[in-house]
Design a protein around this nucleic acid. Structure first.
Lengths: 207, 207
DNA sequence: TCGGGGCCTAAGCGCTTGCTCAGTGGCGCG
DNA sequence: CGCGCCACTGAGCAAGCGCTTAGGCCCCGA
């Protein structure tokens, strides 16, 4: 995938949202939340970035928190989908783990703006919205743990502490969203490849 | 170290700050910032936790941002000190890397409240305060990279991408602050030991 | 041609925010 | 004893917050 396609993808990230004004608002909110954080972002700022007056926001979203909830929901569903695709594929545990880490880490680099919001602004969600998102996160965690368990059972991996290792791998991938910059020396593909290698070593598999 | 000593250590974390009221304020601010985030924390909340009126805060600190700056400065200096102690010790690169990761990850678990603030509220600092803190972070990064470079040069490690691996190791340790909970199943010592093992595998060293 | 609904804005409400300031109580020192 | 000092408080200011409301524009079917 070239830089142009990547940029197009990033722009298309919210293409399913209609009408156009609602899409512009959610896209503006993601950028603002990622830059300044949820609490430091004002509804005036979001509306301004989307090219409309502050009041227009409330035609499409009930509250500022609903905007965060939609972003968080969409993002977590996408992350879960990526993990599931790798976990449920045919192949050895080694192949599935390599694919899971490669695609999961790459997504966090590619969509680092969205990823930063969904990973680091969780606490700003209301209680029941948080609980719903926490469910998606638990499912992602279970899928990864199953791959590692399979590899340990088949003898492909040598891991003493499966839950601990799962936590570490997930933590490693998620934290990409914090440090990744599009201006940095690494492309998302390179991050995915590097991380897949590092993780296969972590589980004592063949690299 | 037992739970009682750990609790005492956590309480003593700001024992160098005087007078007593200033210490209570900084300790209250750390807890509030870690729970809710900098921007969602009010000066009234900090003062209330410290058992004083909102106005009292401004006798000891000029602004709310100065409180964050002091916390960030102290915390980053401590983290740098820990990394330096391991990096500058005698011994093989393997020994130094194991010690660095063990103590650095353990500190982020033990002091997860402070660590969360210094790692995830950085963007709330003013520009020149941020620049100062960024310098401390760069020094920490350089110390770790040197260990990995030494190990690669001596043949102890097999790493293709030294800067990338350094980034991953640092990211892994730092992110402990995000997920670690004192109520969880793991002690800080156990996290340090697990992470040291995982990282030694990542660099292709003997575990 | 014209009525009605969807989308938008200007204005502003009630409230909270970071921070200030005049005043007070109590402690140490002469 | 009395005086000065200083940590601290109660009250409150200006600014900015999330969000609401009243009204207008424009397109579309009848």
């Amino acid at each position: 995938m070239g830089a142009a396609e990547r940029a197009a993808n990033e722009g298309d990230e919210w293409s399913a949202v209609t009408p156009d004004a609602a899409r512009r608002l959610v896209s503006a909110a993601v950028r603002a939340f990622a830059e300044r954080g949820y609490h430091a972002t004002t509804t005036r700022d979001i509306a301004g970035r989307a090219g409309m007056s502050p009041a227009a926001l409330y035609i499409h979203y009930k509250t500022k928190e609903e905007l965060l909830y939609r972003i968080s929901g969409t993002g977590h569903e996408e992350a879960l989908r990526i993990m599931a695709a790798a976990a449920e594929a045919q192949g050895s545990a080694t192949d599935r783990l390599r694919d899971a880490v490669r695609t999961f880490a790459r997504w966090h680099a590619e969509h680092h703006t969205t990823a930063r919001v969904i990973q680091y602004e969780l606490q700003a969600l209301g209680a029941e919205h948080y609980a719903e998102i926490a469910g998606l996160r638990r499912r992602t965690d279970r899928l990864l743990r199953q791959i590692i368990e399979d590899g340990a059972a088949s003898g492909e991996f040598r891991v003493d502490d499966v839950p601990g290792t799962t936590l570490a791998v997930l933590s490693l991938c998620v934290d990409v969203a914090r440090w990744f910059s599009a201006d940095g020396p690494r492309t998302p593909d390179e991050v995915g490849a590097l991380y897949a290698d590092l993780v296969l070593r972590m589980v004592g598999g063949a690299s």
